[in-house]
Design a protein around this nucleic acid. Structure first.
Lengths: 193, 193
DNA sequence: TATATACTAGAACAAAACCTCTAAAATGTC
DNA sequence: GACATTTTAGAGGTTTTGTTCTAGTATATA
């Protein structure tokens, strides 16, 4: 049933990820991806209709990987642990961390997104929203909007901020930032009904 | 002493800034900058040796503008007010905020930086470091490294994080984030000798 | 007014990007 | 072994980019 593949889709995504992490989105040219695997350009277009679709798939795969672990903790209701998930995850996923935290999504995939990608992204976004909303309800009772903003700040924005400058420098985030994230979490969400 | 200028350097920088803010660094093509002013390409190269230099000058001008106000407050010793400077500045400088907070510097100007730019950037960086160090000494006595990290977290990283998601969405940061930044500041640096 | 000078104007060029397209290679099924 | 199908292979087209270069234009000063 046909020739067996020499290069898998995942390999192209991995190569693209490494290129983004090292040189930013514009380093991910189709020929650079091919070149870093020793693969021909044709093999990439055989699997991905366009460069944009390759980047989008890479982005979705990475977000999904991050969110899976994050949502699991969030659903357990342990907010403090959820806030520490980002530093922890980033330490074992440096390239992925650089992709998600250093580059704007709209900028990574310019122009119109393919429908398939839009749907997947929308679903991931819904899952995350849902997770935050139920967590917020659990913590504050009825989810008033300022409450949700506090939660997102403490669980997403602050951990990302703590980690970003180290990712930019290409270093692993030091242990001290866990303290900072924890202290901030307690200040923002700690003393709550 | 020669023909009077129809287009000033600052106009090119302004146009480039608007383009970055709207479409990211890759939207800043030389012809796009020229086009948005109705200027010929030659006029740009008459003032800037290369596209990279244009972007670098734009970046330096923006950083300098931000830092001037920030350092003034920092020198006064009012850390809380310094932490609220970022949200405030960003509200009145949306494009500049997007430039500084959304795009990695190394990525904006790819490759080697011209010497002149490196010197200027190094000086700005020294000024900022110096400001943080004296502030930290004032607050903690001898500047131990973890103390400096706390200061940078509370004064730079957290305010930037609070603001970033609104800049990405193209909105002005709401007032509530000032509360969050303030609460975090107090938690991280508030109860100190 | 004449001239030197600062600037505008944009055509032209080389490099690089994305993508297409044709041909060949390799493998499972009859 | 022959065929159908999947995949590799990469040369070539089109578009866009940064940059150069030559020619022309307008102005301050003498």
């Amino acid at each position: 049933m046909g020739r067996s593949a020499k290069f898998l889709s995942a390999q192209f995504l991995d190569a693209a990820l490494a290129l983004v992490a090292e040189g930013g989105p514009e380093a991910v040219t189709v020929s650079a991806v091919a070149g870093s695997l020793g693969a021909p350009i044709g093999s990439i277009y055989h699997r991905f209709a366009s460069r944009d679709l390759l980047l989008a798939k890479m982005w979705l795969r990475t977000v999904e990987s991050f969110q899976a672990g994050f949502l699991e903790i969030l659903k357990s209701g342990d907010g403090l642990r959820a806030s520490l998930y980002t530093p922890s995850w980033v330490r074992s996923h440096v390239n992925e961390g650089r992709l998600l935290l250093l580059y704007e999504r709209e900028y990574l995939i310019s122009g119109e997104w393919p429908q398939e990608v839009r749907d997947h992204a929308a679903q991931l976004s819904r899952n995350l929203d849902e997770g935050f909303r139920t967590f917020t309800r659990k913590l504050f009772g009825r989810s008033a909007r300022p409450a949700l903003q506090r939660v997102i700040f403490a669980l997403v924005d602050v951990p990302a901020a703590a980690v970003r400058r180290y990712l930019e420098a290409g270093e692993a985030p030091p242990r001290i930032i866990d303290e900072l994230v924890r202290d901030t979490y307690i200040a923002i969400l700690g003393g709550n009904p």
